[in-house]
Simulated assay, not measured.
Amino acid sequence: MDVLIHVFVALHIIGIGALLGGFLTQMKAMGAGTARFTPAMLHGALTMLVTGIALVGIHQAEGHTVDHVKIGVKLAILVVILGLVYVKRDEEKVDKALFGAVGGLTMANIFIATLWV
């Protein structure tokens, strides 16, 4: 079961990398007002959702305690990110504030995952 957990953690990290990487590559375009949500951002967020749910399920199945408040906060943030990226995915350019919000929420999710113990 440990191998499965490590695979899902690796995929979860790949998902956050795709989401954050998509945001960071659009920073210059955001300054010019032409930033857009890339398919990598949507796929990264979906990967995070699926692997995160799998990780929580595996941990609970093994009898480990899960911090439901932390997971709920992370899930709520991810649902907002997914909603914004999914709805605006086909637009040629996205408002700077909206694009910045997705980047900020992504970084908030990273800090919650790493600093909330």
Score class of each variant (00 low, 15 high):
V7A: 15
T25F: 07
K96C: 01
G52T: 13
F37L: 00
A35S: 12
W116R: 01
A76T: 14
G100K: 06
V80S: 09
T65C: 00
M1E: 15
A76V: 14
W116I: 00
P39V: 02
L105D: 05
V56M: 13
E62M: 15
R36P: 00
L20W: 07
I14L: 11
G83Q: 14
V66Q: 04
D2Q: 12
A54C: 12
L55R: 07
G31K: 07
E62V: 09
F99T: 07
R36L: 00
L105M: 14
V66I: 15
T65E: 07
V56N: 07
A40N: 05
L75V: 15
V80P: 08
N109L: 09
T114P: 02
V50L: 14
W116C: 01
M48K: 01
G63F: 15
V102D: 06
I14K: 00
H12A: 02
D90N: 10
T47F: 12
L115F: 13
R89C: 10
A40C: 05
L55Y: 05
K70C: 01
T114I: 15
A108T: 11
F23H: 13
G22R: 09
G17L: 12
V73D: 05
G57Q: 13
A40Q: 07
Y86P: 00
I71D: 06
K93A: 05
L42T: 06
V79H: 11
K96Q: 11
I14F: 11
K93H: 11
A45E: 04
G21T: 05
T25V: 12
F111S: 07
R89Y: 10
K88V: 02
V94E: 09
T34F: 04
D2F: 10
A61H: 13
